[in-house]
Every structure is written in structure tokens, then in C-alpha cells.
Design a binder for these strands. Structure first.
Lengths: 266, 266
DNA sequence: GAAAAAGAATTACATAAAGCAACATTAAAC
DNA sequence: GTTTAATGTTGCTTTATGTAATTCTTTTTC
């Protein structure tokens, strides 16, 4: 079905305009850009024809024309980079509060995420820390800090989180004895529970909650009431949830009834 | 079949400005800095062109211009301190040559180091790669690339290399079957042997040489004749050593007599 | 700390490549 | 065969890139 579209036999591919369009869009989806000369060679048609194809697709709003070819509308540069900026003030406050729970010499686990990255920044005052993390950015940040030892938990990298996930990361956690863990989460549900996006993420956080001396979830207020699909088993064992302001009322109480302390950053 | 689709004619790759822009922003995101000469070498265009690209991106607010290149717009990046690349042109050439040895779909191991980082950059044309690395920068760079799967080998982070070292990294290597490995080295000794700075580094490279389908050392000319303390066991099993120019004569011959091919990048 | 040297920015212009529009040609449809 | 749609061709315009001369910066040297 799709295979026909993507077939590279130039004679076959040549005939029909819709085939070209399909292939053009497919390439755009994977590469982000297409070149006119490149396409003309591939389909064995003139550049003018390709130009007409692109013009048509551009009129339909399926791509952006540029000199020499076309690009996707949004080159989706800033998935992660963008998120970092959201709620920056709140996250910095959470970071400072979290850092206040850490003493020199401790072993600290830092989860992936922008809020935990803020915690990492706030930890720069502490000495002789051992940081244990799955996040590439946090590793890079902390390893450039003096008096800090960093352990990166390996595994397959999730391009969205820019952090290690999966079996290897899960296994690596076993090797560590951590004093305090700061964990992210997908949302804080109306009944006071932190929930997650992925099964392996939830499992990882669950284990950390279980093995760390103290485990804290760090959540900025944009997460309040947000529902994500996975519960985090043994969430009740967490020492606390650090937020930038008190969540609307059914939530805060429900959370405290479960056990973890509700800590509001200042 | 799809392979035809994914052809990487360097002429085409050069043509489109948006492709350069994408790569420039990607580099900025990982390195925090880009140099004009560096980029001109990499894309094989004039400095003037790169200057025009940077000017354009700066007007869009995507970066800050500085003398000789550009930096990230926000100084949020305490995380990504500047890493001036010495010998950037030579490394880019080595990177291109190395990338020429990689086919779409392969499993590639990339060692830590600035030369292997250049290889990573050059691999941006390839599709469906699985990258396996100990380097934080390379992980971060490659996981932002479409159609690339990244495995970060975990372990304690060496702040100099900004890469995982030690037992965990050594163990993690076992789990992988890699098609081709690109390894760094401390120096190329007068008797034609690649040597290393640390015991664990040497061991890691030795194992990789042994288990990878093909292993190549990538060394720029500043390493010629340099003596570092550790030999790399089973160095002779490497498929080749990629350099930017032929080393002075006792060295080149000695190397070839040992087995590995001497590949000079163009 | 000032002078010299090296590298980088800027300007202006030349050239090559791409876009465009009108017309010619071919292939499909009736 | 005629008609219609799609593609190819041609000449001209526009855009992108490269080159060279000049003027800053920065770095090096004494």
C-alpha cells in the first residue's frame, strides 16, 4: 500500500503526480527539507515540474517554499528548549526549596525534566555531592561543577525527555543507594496523585520512591489537575511533593491524606 | 530500495540554506557556540555565506552574533560552556571521511572526544542509525536528530571527557553488537601505535576494537608523535586509522606494518 | 601598555544557480 | 482525430553564493 508510494523504481514513480506528492511529503516528514534538483533527479522529471508540484502543495498549506526546495512549516526546533522557558520563575523557586533539603556530601538522584534541571542549578552551592541521573542535560551541567561526582544512568535515549529510559536505566538504579531523590511527573491528578506519561517512566519513579532515603516529587503549578494515563505505584511512600503554590482545594487535601507532605516553595 | 531515497549527494545537501540553518541551530543547542570557519569547512561553503546565515538567524532572534561565530541567544546556558575546537577544519574532514564508511541502518559506536563529535556531525546525512556512545554531547546531539536511535552507555562521568567511564560503561559495551566503531586516542606514537591517557580508556577502546565489526581510530595531526602512557591492547585488530594528513615518515610506515590501514581524509 | 600581526567584519561586485512566464511538446481522454 | 491536461523548453529576471579590497577587532609581541 504505502510501499508502492515509496517505491523507488523511477519509471513507475515517474508517471503520476500524486505519487510524487506522496513521496515528497514523506521525505519532508523524515528529513525536514527537500531539494528541487534532488527530486527532479529522483523522479526523472524536469525541475519545472517539481516546482509546480511544490507550488501546489504549498498552496494547500502542506509545506513552505524556500529557494531551491521546500521545508516543513515548523522545523520543530524547540521542543525541549521551549519548555525550559515555561514557568521559569516557578521552577527556580522549586529548585531553591528542593536544594534546601540537600546537605553537603549527599547522594542525590535527579530525574529528567525541566523542573529537576532547575533543582540541579540550585544545587551548585553544595559541595561533595554525588549526583545520579538519567538526564543528559543534568549530567552535562553537573559534571562541569567542581566537587561533584556524576553518575549517568545509561540506556536508550528518549528524544523528548533527552534522558535514558528503558530496561538499562531501570536496572542501573539498583546499583545505587541514594539519600534523596527529586522526581518529575506528568501531572497531579484531582485525587492527589502524581501520574505519568509512560509505563517505564512510572516504574522508574516508583522504584526510586521505594529505594531512596527520601523521595520528593517536584511539580510546577501547570501540572495541577492534569490527567496523564499512568499511576505511579507506591506513590504514597514519597516524602513530599514540592510545588510553587498550593493547588486548588480538592487536590491539596487529597494529596496530604495519602501521606506525602505538601511543600510550597517561596 | 529506500536506500535510493536516502542518497546523500553532498552537492544537494549544501544547496539548501534551511539545511544549514537546521544544523547550525542543532550545534548551537549542543555546543553552545558555533564558529564561522568551522561551519564553512563543514558545509564546504564560503565564510561569507555562513555569515549571511548567521545574520539571518540572528535577525530571527535564534542566536547571538559574536566575533568569529555565534552563541545561544539566552545566557541560560551555564550548562554549555564554550569548547573551542582546535583544528576544526581537519576534524570536519576526518568526520566526513568517517561518515563515508557508514551506511544507512548501521549500528555505530562513537567514542568521546572532539574528533568523534565531528564524526557525529557528519553523520547527520545518514538515516536509521543506531548510535551507541559514552559521550554526553554526542548523545544530546544525536537524539535531536530524526531517524536516529541513541543508546547512552552509563557510568561515572569523567568531567574532562564529559563522557561515561569506568566499570559500568565497560560492562554496558558487552550488550551491543556494533557494525562500526570510531574511537579516539591520546596520541599516535613514533612506532605507529595509538596510545591512551587512562587505563580504563585503553581497556574500553581495546574491547571495542575487538568486538566491533570494524573499528577505526580517528586522530587529527596534532596527535602525531605524541606519547601517552598506555598502550591499547589488540590495537592491531583495528580496521584503520583516519587522519587529516599523512604522518611524518617513520610513523606512517610503522603503523601500516602493524595492520590497520592508514586513511587520509580529503 | 603600545605596536604589529592575524583574523574577522563589511562592502561592493561578479558569477552561478534558481525562479518565472510564455510557449512548445507530449501524453492521456473523449 | 480533436481536445485537454500535464510536462518540457526557452529566454529573461531574481536570488544566492563566491571573491576581492578595505576597514575593524582581537591577539600577540616586545
Amino acid at each position: 500500500m504505502i510501499a508502492d508510494t515509496a517505491m523507488s523504481d523511477s519509471q513507475n514513480a515517474r508517471a503520476l503526480a500524486p505519487r510524487r506528492h506522496g513521496e515528497i511529503l514523506r521525505r519532508l516528514a523524515t528529513d525536514g527539507t527537500v531539494g528541487i534538483t534532488e527530486l527532479a533527479d529522483f523522479f526523472d522529471v524536469s525541475r519545472q515540474t517539481i516546482r509546480r508540484d511544490l507550488k501546489l502543495l504549498a498552496d494547500r498549506g502542506q509545506l513552505d517554499l524556500v529557494h531551491g526546495g521546500a521545508t516543513l512549516f515548523e522545523p520543530v526546533e524547540a521542543a525541549f528548549t521551549e519548555r525550559r522557558e515555561e514557568n521559569a520563575g516557578a521552577k527556580a523557586a522549586i529548585g531553591r526549596t528542593a536544594a534546601g533539603l540537600v546537605r553537603d556530601g549527599m547522594v542525590v538522584f535527579l530525574d529528567s525534566g525541566t523542573t529537576t534541571l532547575a533543582v540541579a542549578h540550585a544545587l551548585s552551592e553544595r559541595k561533595n555531592l554525588t549526583i545520579c541521573t538519567t538526564s543528559l542535560s543534568i549530567s552535562l551541567l553537573m559534571c562541569r561543577q567542581p566537587h561533584v561526582r556524576v553518575h549517568m544512568l545509561g540506556g536508550e535515549i528518549d528524544p523528548v525527555e533527552e534522558a535514558a529510559v528503558g530496561i538499562d536505566a531501570l536496572e542501573a538504579i539498583r546499583h545505587f543507594r541514594v539519600d534523596v531523590a527529586f522526581l518529575g511527573g506528568g501531572g497531579l491528578s484531582p485525587d492527589g496523585e502524581v501520574t505519568d506519561f509512560t509505563r517505564s517512566g512510572a516504574e522508574q519513579r516508583s522504584r526510586m520512591t521505594n529505594t531512596a532515603g527520601k523521595a520528593y516529587f517536584v511539580l510546577d503549578s501547570s501540572k495541577f489537575g492534569r490527567l496523564t494515563p499512568l499511576r505511579i505505584p507506591r506513590f504514597e511512600l514519597a516524602a513530599g511533593v514540592i510545588v510553587d503554590r498550593r493547588p486548588p482545594e480538592p487536590i491539596g487535601e487529597a494529596l496530604e491524606r495519602r501521606g506525602p507532605a505538601l511543600i510550597v516553595a517561596t
